[in-house]
Amino acid sequence: MSDAPIVFDRLTRYFGSRCVLDTLSIEVPRGSVFALLGRNGAGKTTAIRCLLGLLEPTRGSARVLGHDARHLPPDIRARIAYVAEDHRMVPSMRLGAIVDLQAASFPAFDAHACRGRLNQLGLSEKAKPKNLSRGQRAQASLALALATTPEVVVLDDPALGLDAVVRREFLETVIELIQHEGRTVFLTSHLLGDVERVADHVAILVNGVLRVAAPLDEVRRRVVRLHGFFPGEAPEFPGGMPGVVRSVRRRNELLVTVANEATAAGERLRAMGATLVEEETLGLEDLFIDYTGGTAQGAGE
């Protein structure tokens, strides 16, 4: 069995007759920062809820630190930190009291470090979450999660609704967090620039199906966009070619995003009559859009 700290093994989840996650298999390497990407409704939060044992899989399993997520023993659960996307906290409890409560609940909770961090963020122990801004609540819940010195950190779209300045501060905290040797971070996000900064592995979910899961550098190396230029109107790119992620026609130009098979796709373009074929490397944002937004011309799907 794998010793990866997070394993999704053919995880499938239905809501009624709708399949939200379809045989998702991922192994998250120890010490990595793994970003799960997908559009709204792609199944990211469902995957996270299964991972934390908050939701039962229909088939397959999620495992954390070697244990099935449905039956996490308390000592294992104490090694996992979770920051929910809306940063939920008891609204009317003072931060100081929340710290005390956490310290009483988690043996490894470092109340001193947590108070220090809250102080550093300019958050008074007398403050109540209901009076904090969204950004302050995000920072406070991250500070609380990290004070358990977790081995696995799960962040569900942590930057959602934060302004640019707070997001940067939040990212700085995440960088601090991953300086810790061997700590594994699993996150979802819509902000691809942020993901590019912090993640070293990415996975892309499209309608509950995993399309890519690899180190970020590898994905960026393997996936390129070819521009084929034609003397007249560009023809349709034939379906069924291996590796084709998406193809789009633009007057005399045919754009083909392709994984692994750039040479074959380039030869095909020339055989179709392209007079010039150029290769473009893609940033994460373009890559994401081609994988997730390509339904209109999705020759590869």
């Binding site: 960088i175 991953i178 300086q179 900064r197 993640a199 070293d200």
Partner: peptide, 17 residues
Amino acid sequence: VRELARELVINPNTIAK
């Protein structure tokens, strides 16, 4: 590596690489 990771706000593994 740590200093630059903090300064540029990017993953230390990227700096190390």
